Computed example of a mutant assay.
Amino acid sequence: MSVVTLVGNPRSGSRTHEAAVRAAGTLAGRIGRDGPGEVVDLSALAPLLLAPGASAGVEVALEQVAEAQVLVVASPVYKGSYTGLLKAFLDRLPGGALTGTVALPLLVLGDARHSLAVEVHLRPLLVELGAAVPTPGLALLESQLADLDAHLGPWADRVAPQTAALLAERSVAR
């Protein structure tokens, strides 16, 4: 079973990256999988995403994301929503590309006023691509990153049963 982490922060080595990988690992442990699995860090692909023509690196990343059974999608909040880098990448996926994928949105926020962005902006994009998205998505304030485990554990406890049920449902359907 593949758990893939997609990080839409334009800066490499970001706090968003760390939070996403740890969230994927925490969730993977709760559903009995090895984690956090593969990481697609868009900061390394940023120059290629808007370049004309195809890029082998982008194509491999798109394939990893589309083939994931569990996909943790993370971004910092910029201007009240996820990054343009994440949007540019996800726009390259065809409609329905995430059908059969359980996707878990994660946003890192500077201000609590943006906490609904995970449900109002990122969730609908993942659903539009065909993913099943358990609730709740994870909205982490930057101030919470210092004690990340205290926030990841309760979130994973809530979404793990839904994730496991969706994975079982999808394996029966195959």
Rank of each mutant, 00 (worst) to 15 (best):
Q144K: 04
Q144W: 01
A117H: 00
L86V: 03
R113V: 01
Q162H: 14
T83F: 09
L138S: 07
T99H: 11
Q162T: 08
W155K: 01
A88L: 15
L106P: 11
L152R: 02
W155C: 01
A117P: 03
E128F: 14
A146I: 03
T99Y: 13
P124E: 03
E142Q: 13
L86H: 05
H121S: 06
P136K: 06
A164E: 14
A164K: 14
A139K: 00
V73T: 07
L93F: 14
A146K: 11
S115M: 12
L90G: 12
A146N: 06
E142C: 07
G84R: 10
L93V: 12
L122T: 00
L85P: 01
V108Y: 05
G84D: 12
L109E: 01
T163L: 10
W155E: 08
P134H: 15
Y82S: 05
L152Q: 01
L167G: 06
G130F: 11
K87C: 09
T163N: 06
D157N: 13
D147S: 10
E119S: 05
Q144C: 01
K87V: 11
Q162S: 12
G100V: 09
T101R: 06
A97Q: 13
A103D: 10
L152M: 03
S81T: 12
V118S: 03
A146D: 07
T99S: 14
E142R: 12
L167R: 10
L129H: 10
E128Q: 10
A88W: 14
P105I: 05
P124N: 04
V73F: 02
L90K: 13
P154R: 15
H151Y: 15
V77M: 00
L152I: 02
G84N: 09
H151V: 06
P94W: 04
L116A: 07
Y78Q: 08
S143N: 04
L129E: 09
V120G: 00
S75N: 04
P154K: 15
W155G: 01
L126D: 09
L141V: 10
G100R: 12
V133G: 04
L145V: 04
G130N: 09
G80R: 07
Y78T: 06
R158A: 15
G96P: 07
L116W: 02
D111V: 03
T135D: 11
T135F: 13
A112L: 11
